[in-house]
Amino acid sequence: MEPFVSHTGLLAPFDQDNVDTDQIIPARFLRKPRDAQYPRWLFHDLRFAQDGSANPDFVLHRPPYDRASILVAGANFGVGSSREAAVYALLAGGIRGVVASGFGDIFFQNALKNGLIPVRLAPAEVAALRQAAPGASATIDLSTLSVTGPDGTVYRFEVPDFARDCLLRGLDEIGLTLSLSHKIAAYEARHDAA
């Protein structure tokens, strides 16, 4: 996996609480392969009308937000289903970080496994970033666990050590766990004997 150390990008405000994974990618697109079409499934039903035309009001369609790579949401982003496709769709749409005051637990894990950084901040901090001027950017730094806003304000966030380590070093979790196979085998031996 590509290491992730820091990312600087444009902020896009997405002022909605409880954005569920069915909003991020509707279930009927879960069967789709991760190909060049994939960006289209991101927030599909919010972004496109029934006839397929783009909704010009949707934030990611409005310049300069169409170039945004950091989404600033509300509370409980990514609640609902376990579909990792929600993370795939955000990444396909060029999003590398989501700032929110809370995340669905499974979404949070899925994001970290794929190098999409879930930045959990206090509601007032999220609101401050959401109010950044159009075209403003921020930097998410995983090595210092901080977000630097457009006005230079530094916000601290947390990510579990192990996930952070894997991301910073581009380590692959499966490979890492397989290096512990002897421990797993020992557990299995104890368990089967019991």
């Binding site: 376990s82 899925n110 766990t177």
Partner: peptide, 9 residues
């Protein structure tokens, strides 16, 4: 419940 990366793991 877990995501696809965790399922693979």
């Amino acid at each position: 419940g877990i995501g696809a990366s965790e399922v693979a793991h």
